[in-house]
Simulated assay, not measured.
Amino acid sequence: MKFAITLVRHGETRYNKAKLLQGQGVDEPLSEFGFKQAKAAGQALSKVRFSHVFSSDLQRAKQTASAIVLNSCGRELEIICDVRLRERKYGIVEGKPLTELRALAKAAGQKCPNFTPPGAETVDDVQARAKDFFYYLCHLLTQTGKDNGVPDQIDSTAEHSGDFHTPLEGVSSVGSNICDINDGNSDNAKDLIANVLVVSHGGFMLQWIRHFVEDLKCPLPPSFDPSKVFSVCPNAGISRFVITFDQVVSSSPQIVCDYIYKCSHLDGIGVQQDVFSV
């Protein structure tokens, strides 16, 4: 059994631009530039036939997911929001400059992003959320695939996301320019039981990818600089993984990374912000 996950960070917000921490407590929408980034991601992924779409319930992620869905082969897919996909909670520094977090970390003799300010989640807490969602997704997709063939939708994640089933909102449809982001070295559509889009946040995605690379031994693409794998993905950056199981969900699926933190679709629309701007 094999399925693909396309992992996208939300577009830029005013807080990203100003290097202010958002976390979970600041639910800021995309900026005008962030909408441009989200549309560019939608254009880049416009030939990918997604079967399922999941998003953090924070509006910067939902708006980015909407932009991508509106360009997904003309299909109107429901965006299923799940609270496990939220950004890391940053406690007392939410809404404050990134420099304040760095100063607190330095005073404690630690480095960002592993430092935990008062009231914040630890990085282990965030990775536990990421692992929980990933294995939930694995189980759900493999069971649905065995029972019903390739599904059009997962019906609900209500036990985790309440009534967060989200209509498409806030983004207009754009064109269908295609870039090489649709070319994956393991993309064989007839072998996939599902093709899943997940839109989330930089700090959360970092811990998800850390689990893939460190725990599940996912090899990186040969062209990727390994020193950057544990940096925060730029706004609207895209990563794609193909997950393979034998017959049942196990603790050690085989994972292939087609590409990671890809941003070529953003060329020409503006300057990317520094990493670790969450």
Rank of each mutant, 00 (worst) to 15 (best):
F276L: 12
K36E: 09
F212S: 05
P118K: 14
M205F: 03
H211D: 10
S223R: 14
D258R: 02
A61E: 04
V93T: 06
V242N: 02
L45G: 01
S227R: 14
F35H: 03
G109T: 10
A103T: 11
G119P: 07
V83L: 10
P234V: 06
F245P: 01
D180V: 00
R84Y: 08
V126I: 15
V249P: 00
V213R: 06
L104N: 06
K228H: 12
V150C: 07
R240K: 15
R129Y: 11
K96H: 13
N177A: 10
F204I: 04
I68L: 06
H211S: 11
F230Y: 15
I255H: 01
N71M: 09
I181H: 00
G42W: 00
P167A: 12
N177E: 12
L206E: 01
S250M: 05
N16P: 06
A44H: 00
Y15Q: 02
P167L: 13
L137W: 04
F133I: 10
S72L: 07
S223L: 12
K89E: 11
I181S: 00
I68N: 02
K62E: 11
D215R: 11
S223G: 11
P29M: 07
D180W: 01
K262A: 09
E28N: 05
H160W: 10
S186C: 07
L137F: 08
P219H: 12
N177S: 09
C81Y: 03
P167T: 08
V278T: 15
Y136R: 12
A41K: 00
D274S: 15
